[in-house]
Design a protein around this nucleic acid. Structure first.
Lengths: 218, 218
DNA sequence: ATTAACATTTTTGTCGACAATATAGCCGTT
DNA sequence: AACGGCTATATTGTCGACAAAAATGTTAAT
């Protein structure tokens, strides 16, 4: 299988990834203006590649641009986070449904193995599960949907924005113990090829996550 | 209310809209290669603006680009259409749910009025309902969700692709008579603020549409 | 005849400069 | 002092040219 994370080949690619990283990780602060000339000197490339990178960031809804004025990093608001999670609930719910339909038995076995390894970590009190494990879990289910559009929307769009909120509003990772059980039930539904249940459980899982985060904001 | 269809201001904007139109309407045939120099002479603009237009088309998944090779218009396949409708079912279902929650009473009244005017047209055997009416109906519900991401994904992404399939695979418009009843029930659910039902009916409505189209393909 | 390597040509990627537009500051008027 | 218009300045939009990479065509060797 070809890795879904394609590595940059052109300068505009590299600049795009770097710029996105710097924004998501908060080095370039939310709401700030993106000056093309300034960035071109900072990243050591021409204005043309900066423009292309900014255009792509605009398509991801990470920056907003006004014609003849310039681009700004999006502002982070509670409403924005809510809207994001509404979309995520919808798309990942569908992803779980399609995964129950389209994942191979081998892929499901791998998913179960992944979950077992997480279980051991959680039991030992390790924090590994906190970030990468959760992402990996959702990652595989989304890929398991085998739906190109779904995969692109979530990986290229939603996930970076969600991470941006997580990092910059200083939220902790996913709720470790309870989330693990939810993951377990989702995998069970997928293994049983129960599309309806898989979607429903995934949606509830994300709703819980949303409520958890929303409570920390207000 | 400010119109959600923003008009082009810069040359790159205009070229992007024109190019998208030419592709969706089939003047530039699906699967064909997009030569930057060729297009720049054809549209009478510099290669830079063509490049920007192509980049934006790539973000919409209307063209695919390989680094150092070029861009091609996407190929239309039955699987691709299926994937599209899966996403559409998910997103528009959520849009209906959110519309039931967030639309104002005034907006709902307008929606009902729109449906009534369609009803008269359908009764008189007019074909107005065929295309624009259906689009307008879905349009308003999506806007009624008040969710920025949802609106952008559907309007900028999915809808143009769906139309591209419709036009180029020579499908007729929506199923007039039965679809009308489905629309009516969806509006009823929204007027009753029944989020659950609104989502479910919208999903079924799109599923029927998918099945209708899929049967014509095979 | 097929293949491999090389040279040629075409196409994309990148750059710096110019043109057009918006922003900011200044001046004069009321 | 406040407001309106004007000028200056800075930033974005567009262009043509150069560099780099891939595709094509040609030649030579097996």
């Amino acid at each position: 299988m070809t890795s879904p994370v394609k590595q940059p080949v052109t300068a505009a690619d590299k600049t795009f990834y770097q710029l996105r990283l710097d924004i998501v990780e908060g080095e370039i602060t939310a709401g700030s203006k993106l000056s093309e000339t300034e960035l071109s000197t900072k990243y050591g490339v021409s204005r043309a590649v900066i423009r292309e990178a900014i255009n792509r960031l605009e398509s991801c809804h990470i920056v907003e641009r006004k014609a003849n004025v310039g681009a700004r990093v999006v502002a982070l608001t509670a409403d924005g986070l809510l809207a994001l999670y509404q979309v995520r609930e919808s798309l990942e719910g569908m992803a779980a449904r399609l995964a129950a339909k389209n994942m191979t038995d081998g892929e499901i076995n791998e998913l179960e193995a992944l979950l077992n390894s997480h279980f051991k970590d959680v039991k030992q009190g390790e924090s590994y599960y906190q970030e990468a494990g959760d992402v990996d879990f959702h990652y595989r289910i989304i890929l398991g949907s085998k739906n190109k559009h779904l995969i692109a929307m979530l990986f290229d769009g939603i996930y970076h924005l969600v991470r941006m909120y997580r990092v910059q509003l200083g939220m902790a990772g996913p709720r470790v113990t309870t989330a693990f059980d939810e993951h377990k039930h989702i995998v069970q539904a997928i293994a049983n090829r129960d599309e309806e249940l898989a979607e429903m459980l995934m949606r509830r899982h994300i709703m819980y996550s949303k409520n958890n985060i929303h409570s920390k904001l207000s």
